[in-house]
C-alpha cells in the first residue's frame, strides 16, 4: 500500500477505484486454487469422457480414434443380433430404472430415519448434542467397504438376523436378504444416513423450538406442528440431505457390488463393467454422461417442486 500512497492526497474517487481493484485481485487469488481444481480435475476429465463417448471401442479396451455414435445409440437401444431390428435396450433401461428407484427409496428411508434422529439430537441439552452427533459420524469415518461388509454380516443367510430369528423359532429356514433389492436399500440407507442427518440437524439446531409451543398454544396437534411449523422451517436441511443422499446413491458402486450381486446391478456397476470386462469404453463414457444428465435433471425437478410448494415467496 505504501507504494500507492502519493505525496498529494488522492481524490476520493481514485482511492475507491484503487480499493476495488485491490479487492478484485484478492478475490481472484483466493479463488485460483478452487478454479484450478475445477478446471483440471473436473472439467478436463469430463471433456475426455465426452470425447470418448463419440469414439469406437478398441478390441482390448481403450478407444480407437474413429468417430461413432454407436455408444450413444447403445445406451437406450440395440439392434437384434439375428433380425437386425432396432429395439429398446431393456437390460439397460431396467438398470437405469432400478438405480433411480432404489436411490429414491433410499433417500426416503434416510429421511424417515434421519429426521426423527436429527430432531432427537437437536432437542437434547446442548452439552450432550456433540456426543450424539459423534455417534452418527463415527461410522462415517469407517471405510465404506468395511461398513458394507458389516451389513452383509447382519443380513446374510447365516448372519446375525437370520440366526436370531431361527433361534427364536419365528422361522426355520433363513430369509434370503443378500443379493436382493432389499439388501441394497438397507446397505445404502445405512451408508448414506449421516449425509441426511447432518444437514437436517444443522437446520433443526437453528430452529426456535418456542415456535412449537406457539403452535400447540394455537390449537395445532403434534402432527400439525410437525407439518406446518417444523418441516417448513427445516426444509433447507431436508432438501440438502435428500440431494446428498440421492446423488451418490445413483452412482453407488461398492454397496451394490457387495450386497446386490450380479443380478441387482446398478448404474455404477454397469459403467464399471464397460470399462472392465465389457471393453466398451465409449459405452461406459456415454452411460456415465447419461447418469450425470439424470442427476442434474432430478435435481432441477426436485428443487423446482420444493420451491413451488413455498408459494414462490422465498424465491
Amino acid at each position: 500500500m505504501a507504494g500507492t500512497a502519493s505525496a498529494r492526497p488522492a481524490p476520493a474517487r481514485d482511492l475507491a477505484a484503487a480499493r476495488r481493484r485491490e479487492e478484485r485481485r484478492t478475490r481472484a487469488l483466493l479463488l485460483a486454487p478452487a478454479m484450478a481444481i475445477l478446471i483440471f480435475a473436473a472439467s478436463g476429465p469430463l471433456l475426455i469422457v465426452l470425447a470418448y463417448s463419440f469414439l469406437t471401442p478398441g478390441d482390448y479396451g481403450g478407444v480407437v480414434w474413429e468417430f461413432s455414435l454407436k455408444a450413444w445409440f447403445n445406451v437406450f437401444a440395440e439392434r437384434d443380433f439375428f433380425t437386425g431390428e432396432i429395439e429398446l435396450a431393456d437390460a439397460h433401461l431396467s438398470i437405469f430404472w432400478r438405480s433411480i428407484k432404489l436411490s429414491a427409496m433410499t433417500t426416503a428411508l434416510c429421511l424417515l430415519i434421519g429426521f426423527p434422529t436429527a430432531y432427537f439430537i437437536a432437542t437434547r441439552p446442548r452439552k450432550t448434542r456433540d456426543f450424539w452427533m459423534l455417534l452418527v459420524i463415527i461410522p462415517f469415518w469407517t471405510n465404506l467397504l468395511i461398513r458394507t461388509f458389516a451389513i452383509m454380516e447382519l443380513i446374510r443367510n447365516e448372519g446375525t438376523v437370520n440366526s436370531f430369528l431361527i433361534w427364536t423359532g419365528l422361522i426355520d429356514t433363513p430369509i434370503q436378504m443378500m443379493f436382493t433389492e432389499f439388501a441394497l436399500l438397507v446397505g445404502m440407507a445405512y451408508v448414506y444416513l449421516p449425509l441426511m442427518i447432518l444437514p437436517v440437524y444443522a437446520a433443526l439446531e437453528r430452529f426456535d423450538f418456542r415456535l412449537v409451543e406457539a403452535g400447540y398454544d394455537l390449537y395445532a396437534g403434534r402432527w400439525q406442528v410437525l407439518r406446518r411449523i417444523v418441516l417448513p422451517l427445516a426444509k433447507p436441511g431436508v432438501v440438502a440431505g435428500s440431494i446428498l443422499v440421492f446423488v451418490p446413491c445413483l452412482g453407488a458402486y461398492v454397496t451394490p457390488r457387495v450386497l446386490g450381486g450380479g443380478k441387482n446391478m446398478m448404474l455404477g456397476n454397469f459403467i464399471e463393467l464397460q470399462f472392465g470386462q465389457g471393453r466398451n469404453w465409449p459405452l461406459g463414457a456415454a452411460l456415465a454422461l447419461t447418469l450425470l444428465v439424470i442427476v442434474m435433471a432430478a435435481l432441477i425437478v426436485y428443487v423446482r417442486a420444493v420451491g413451488r410448494e413455498e408459494g414462490g415467496r422465498h424465491g
Binding site: D208, L211, E213, D217, L218, L233
Partner: peptide, 18 residues
C-alpha cells in the same frame, strides 16, 4: 393438552412463525 385449552399466549419472544 395445550392445544385443547381455550387459552392463548402472547410469548415474550412473540414466537411468530417466520
Amino acid at each position: 393438552a395445550p392445544y385443547e385449552r381455550p387459552v392463548n399466549t402472547v410469548f415474550q419472544s412473540y414466537a411468530l412463525f417466520p
